[in-house]
Design a protein around this nucleic acid. Structure first.
Lengths: 275, 275
DNA sequence: CACTGTGAAAGATTTCACAGCA
DNA sequence: TGCTGTGAAATCTTTCACAGTG
């Protein structure tokens, strides 16, 4: 679920409509027409497709791609239909074409420089995360409060003071800020980022950030994820009642050791690099 | 969001219905009746409420709580209505009561031991994350492949080898596994966790895990979050067209330095502890 | 009177199922 | 024939708006 996004107000929406009142997917508002939920999945498809490309797989059917991405094929086809018709009936999709189109749709053709604020464990992990640069998100700036960290290079980039956020972000053309500070400092850091013209924030701090409506915030909250899992544990143990025949045994196909399809996925994406 | 969840099949749903065919919210399936989306938000309300409790605020209205949590008050009231009627009309909610009821609903009255697999930067961050133990998720076991790490304590817990997952998880009664390994190892680690009886997985590796249907997986994927942000940047810069009067200036109330409401939220939740 | 709790409407997302094309 | 692309139905989620209550 979703998942977790945190922006209150909606933009005034200057709906582009054809004169007869029916919204048609013209180039201009094609982007606007894609459901939020589908966008999130497109990013997943992109990763899976990269895996296929690496294994020299050139064509996939909606069914294959759907299984690899963990969704059903109808949903996948509908999602892809939002970005256009790039499949071949009776055959499937060309991996390279689909990658290109999804990248275009997600705006990945241009680079987005990232600033990481809060260089603790998580900040280190983010600064070193191989998946970012390789996917068009170079980490361009690091910030912290700790005087001992100033100038210390982490993942090749020297740490600056949070007071320099406006200057440094402007200089290095930062478009995304990743807030990995403790809760207390998060809103303050966020305000500085907004001042500096950053319009996209990825918030790891356990706080609901207050931002002007033109700023997009996405929140990653570990405690919340845990609690959602906890809810499901609780719900299950509560279902001690009937162990329905069909429910008892696993789906056979589902459990299998290290499935081929994802086995070699994008090695550059290794999550963790030790300091 | 939202967020992002990743479980394919649904359970066969042995719907409890009253004999006349209308589903009534009996204690048994009360949990089942709560929409997935509402569960995620309940966890957020819980955090905000903890903040209020700490500031010695004993009563909140739906409006206050909604603002602090970044949702609208109608949604908040509906969400709370799923867990029961604990408000007082004309007054609001008692903070302590609400905290208790949400905790009960989310199954937080019992502890859930967590195992972290993959002790790199992210693993360190997770092992040291103060928000877990304080919220009923003690980190009880750490695993890695690296021989140099075996027995080394991280956040007070010695690292074990991934081969010992079944034994150690059973011994320490682990219910949640947090996979912070590189992509390659993730499915293998996941399989071992499932073998060990773990039914809840928080997956940070950029892979779609294949699991039996009784296992719940939640995925946190940084690259995907970035790409969603990228999409919104792209959409906006595409909207170079009309700069609608209302859209140009910020919402006044929204932007304000370090809002009171969240200023002192749960200090124990500090995201990052330096090694 | 102020605020909760909730049916019912509106909107968004998912699923179905099949027409249509290579 | 096999698979895509997509209207239409089903389902889930949000919002509205107001009756009901301490």
């Amino acid at each position: 679920m979703r998942d977790g996004d945190a922006h209150g107000a909606e933009e005034p929406a200057s709906e582009q409509q054809s004169s007869d009142g029916v919204t048609i997917p013209e180039p201009q508002d094609r982007a606007k027409a894609i459901p939020e939920a589908a966008v999130a999945r497109l990013a997943v498809y992109l990763r899976v497709l990269s895996g296929f490309a690496e294994q020299e797989v050139h064509t996939v059917s909606s069914e294959e791609l759907a299984v690899a991405a963990g969704v059903n094929s109808a949903k996948l086809r509908k999602d892809l239909s939002y970005i256009g018709s790039y499949g071949t009936r009776g055959v499937g999709y060309e991996v390279a074409v689909l990658i290109g189109q999804i990248e275009r749709t997600l705006g990945l053709t241009q680079q987005h420089s990232v600033a990481v604020i809060g260089i603790g464990n998580l900040g280190h992990a983010l600064a070193n995360y191989g998946g970012f640069p390789s996917r068009g998100f170079p980490v361009a700036a690091l910030f912290d409060l700790d005087p001992d960290l100033m100038g210390v290079p982490v993942g090749g980039i020297p740490v600056d003071h949070v007071d320099d956020i406006p200057r440094v972000c402007a200089e290095r053309d930062v478009t995304i800020g990743a807030i990995a500070t403790p809760a207390k400092g998060a809103q303050d850091v966020c305000d500085r980022l907004v001042q500096a013209g950053v319009r996209c924030v990825l918030n790891f701090a356990p706080v609901v950030l207050q931002v002007p409506e033109e700023v997009e915030v996405r929140k990653v909250d570990l405690a919340v994820e845990m609690q959602i899992l906890s809810f499901h544990v609780a719900r299950r143990s509560q279902e001690t009642s009937e162990s329905t025949a069909s429910g008892a045994e696993a789906d056979g196909a589902a459990q299998s050791k290290t499935r081929d399809v994802n086995a070699g996925v994008n090695p550059v994406d290794g999550m963790v690099v030790r300091p």
